[in-house]
Every structure is written in C-alpha cells, then in structure tokens.
C-alpha cells in the first residue's frame, strides 16, 4: 500500500496482516489451520505475519492440545482492536476527503 498518512497503522500495511486482524476482530478466537485455509496462504507466510502482530501486542496466542495434537489459537487484544478501528477510520476519512 502506498498511503502516506500518519493515521495509517504500519502493522496493517500488509494486506494479509489486515485480513488476519479482520478475522480476529470478528471472531472470539481463530485457530492457525482455519486461518491458513481462509486466507489461502502458506504456513511460513502466515506464521511470520502472526509473529509481527504478536510483537505489536495486537494479538495473543493461546496454545492448547486437542487430544495429542497441538492447537494454536489466536485472539485479538484490546490494543489490537483499537488499532484496527483506528485504521478503518483512517480509510474512511480518506474516502471522505477525496469525495469532498
């Protein structure tokens, strides 16, 4: 993305990261495999974007076991939800500006 406005969140510059955040805002939590399938991305790609969001403390990780298989779920943090909303507002403002 080539938006140069300060309100835009750097963490959401990447389309996949923005999509991950959209899923986590709309759902209580989501597991790794479902996310991978929904976004149609590779393991490594998804993992690196999740890491980045985790580093920003926008999402939290819940590790558990389903029987013997590890099950990793992700959840949006309050900080992440606030950042996502701000990003959406910025998008909205940009549209308004260009129309006005």
């Amino acid at each position: 993305m080539k938006i140069a406005l300060t309100n835009f969140d750097k963490a959401f510059e990447n389309r996949i990261r923005l999509q991950i955040m959209s899923v986590l805002v709309a759902n209580e939590s989501y597991d790794f495999n479902s996310l991978k399938e929904l976004l149609a991305v590779t393991d490594g790609n998804l993992a690196s974007h999740l890491k980045a969001l985790e580093k920003e403390e926008y999402i939290s990780v819940i590790k558990s076991f389903l029987g013997r298989k590890p099950n990793t779920r992700y959840q949006a943090s309050a900080k992440g939800i606030a950042a996502f909303k701000k990003h959406l507002e910025a998008l909205e403002n940009l549209i308004k500006q260009q129309k006005g």
Partner: peptide, 15 residues
C-alpha cells in the same frame, strides 16, 4: 481503498 474495505468485509463474513 474501496478494495481494501471490501476485502475486510468479505473476510469477516467468510470467517
């Protein structure tokens, strides 16, 4: 921007 927003909406709905 509209693309971006519609992709967000789409992914939320699908999820």
């Amino acid at each position: 921007i509209l693309d971006e927003i519609s992709s967000i909406k789409n992914i939320m709905e699908r999820s």
